[in-house]
Nucleic acid binder design. Structure first.
Lengths: 245, 245
DNA sequence: AATACCAAAACTGTATACATGATTGACGGA
DNA sequence: TCCGTCAATCATGTATACAGTTTTGGTATT
C-alpha cells in the first residue's frame, strides 16, 4: 500500500518507543500537524502512521478528534493477557513440534542480551528484549501469522505494564523464568513448558495489574484511568507545547 | 482516525464481499482511481480502505504497484488455519466458563438462519452465516480482542476456501457439526466441545486444501497460485476494463 | 464565584495537484 | 520470429488547499 517509506517507518517506530517508554503519557494529544512538522512529513503520511498505531492499540483516535496516546482500560488489559496466554501456549506447542537445536542457542542469546542490558541499568532496553523473547519464540513456531499476533500482543502488554505497573518494576525477574522455559523446550516437555509459560505470564500480569480487584472491575476501570489522567496532567508535555500565557 | 465515514465503510464492505464471493478474482488489479470513481470518493479515502483490506489479508499491496486481490499461498493458508484452531479452542473454553442459557438460543438461531439460506440456495449467504457462527462464539467469550482476531481469521479462511476450495462445496455439511458443538457447550463438556470444534475445523480445512501434498508445499504453492492466475486470466474483469484494441 | 455563551484558534476530513516510478506496446535490429 | 529498447500511459507517493467541526478562553450574566 504505502508503508515502507523510511520516514514513515521512522515516525512509527519513534512514536511507538516513546509511548512504551512512557515519555508520552497516556492521553497526550498527538496532532497531525505537529507530528508532521517534527518528522518533516505531511499530514497525509502522519495519518497513515497514526492509523497503524491505532490498529496496534497504542493510540486512540476517534473521528474528528485529535488522536491521543491510548489509555487501556482494565477490561482491555484482561482481554489482551487472556488472548496472549492462549497464543503463548500454542507457540510453545508448535516450537516443540518443530524444534531444532539452533533454537535453544537463539533464545539463550536473547536472554543474555537482556541480562547484560539490565546490568547496564538500561531498563527500557531490557524490557524490550524481554518482550522480544516471546516474539522470537513465536517466530520459531514457523507460523508468520502467529508471530504477527504475538508481536502485537507483546506491544500492548508493554503499554499496559507501563500504565498500570508499579513504576520501577520493569518486567524484571523474567530472565530466570525464560531460562527455565528454554530448558523445558529443549527437553521437548510440552506440558511443562506450557505450565512454565503460564506461570511466567501470571508473574507479568500480576506485576501489571497489581491492585486489581476482579469483582469491582467496572468502577476500578474508571478510577484507574482517572488516576492516570491526573498524574499526567501537568508534567512533561513533550509534543504539544503549552504556549505562554 | 478516519474510519466511520459511511462511504468508506460502504466501499470497504463492498470490496470485502466481492472478494469473498470471488466476483473479484485473486490477482485482479484494484486501481485507486477507478475504485474512487466507482464509489464517488477521492483516492485519499480509497487508500485508507485498501490499507484496511490489506491488514485483513484480503488485498496485496506492494509499494508503487497497483493493489491486487490477495492470492493466499498454501503456506499462509496453513498458518491461518493453525492459528484459528488455537483460538477456536480458547473461545470454546472461555464460552463454557462464562456460559449463560441465552447463549445456546443465540447460536441455534444462527444455525437455523444458515439452514434456511441454504434451502433457498443462497450459498453465499449461507457461507457467510457459517462464518458468523464462529465469530459469534468468540463474541460470547466476552473477550473483544479474541472476537476481533476470530473475525479476521474467519474472513481469511473464507478467501482461502474461495481460492483453493472445490467450486461448489461452500462450507456445507457444517450445520450438523455446529449443532453438535452447541450441545457440548450446553453440557459444559469443554473437552468434547473442543474435540468437535477441531474435527469441524478439519472438515473445513480439508475442503479448502483438497489436493495438498504436505511434502511438496514449496512447489505446490507456486503451481497452485499459477493455476489460479490462469483460471482467472480472461474471464470477468469487473473493475479494470480491458480497453478496446 | 460559578455558569452560559460566543468568537477565535486548533484540528481534522477530503479533494486535488504535481512529481515520479511502473507498465505496456510498438518499432527496429538480429 | 524473437528480443531489446524507448516513449506514451497508467497509477502511485506525497504535499497542500479549503471546508467544516471541535476546542478553548474570555466576557457578560446571574
Amino acid at each position: 500500500m504505502t508503508r515502507p517509506s523510511p520516514r514513515t517507518d521512522i515516525a512509527h517506530e519513534a512514536l511507538k518507543q516513546a509511548i512504551l517508554e512512557r515519555a508520552l503519557q497516556p492521553g497526550t494529544k498527538l496532532p497531525e500537524d505537529e507530528i508532521g512538522a517534527h518528522f518533516g512529513m505531511s499530514r497525509t503520511l502522519v495519518r497513515a502512521v497514526l492509523a497503524k498505531l491505532q490498529s496496534e492499540g497504542l493510540v486512540d483516535a476517534r473521528p474528528k478528534r485529535t488522536a491521543i496516546v491510548a489509555q487501556p482500560t482494565l477490561a482491555e488489559a484482561r482481554d489482551v493477557f487472556e488472548v496472549r496466554r492462549g497464543l503463548e501456549a500454542q507457540a510453545v506447542d508448535l516450537v516443540i513440534k518443530r524444534w531444532k537445536p539452533s533454537f535453544g542457542a537463539e533464545l539463550e542469546g536473547l536472554v543474555r542480551e537482556e541480562d547484560a542490558a539490565r546490568e547496564r541499568h538500561e531498563e527500557h532496553v531490557a524490557g524490550r528484549l524481554g518482550g522480544e523473547f516471546h516474539i522470537r519464540l513465536a517466530k520459531l513456531s514457523g507460523n508468520v501469522l502467529l508471530e504477527r499476533y504475538m508481536s502485537e500482543l507483546v506491544t500492548r502488554c508493554s503499554l499496559i505494564l507501563a500504565v498500570y505497573g508499579s513504576p520501577h518494576s520493569h518486567d524484571h525477574s523474567g530472565p530466570n523464568e525464560h531460562i527455565e522455559i528454554i530448558a523445558a523446550l529443549r527437553a521437548g516437555d510440552a506440558a511443562r513448558a506450557i505450565a512454565l509459560m503460564d506461570a511466567h505470564m501470571s508473574t507479568v500480569e500480576r506485576r501489571a495489574m497489581h491492585d486489581t480487584d476482579p469483582a469491582g472491575a467496572a468502577l476500578g476501570d474508571v478510577l484507574a484511568r482517572y488516576a492516570v489522567a491526573i498524574a499526567g496532567r501537568d508534567s512533561a508535555i513533550p509534543l504539544k507545547q503549552k504556549r505562554a500565557k
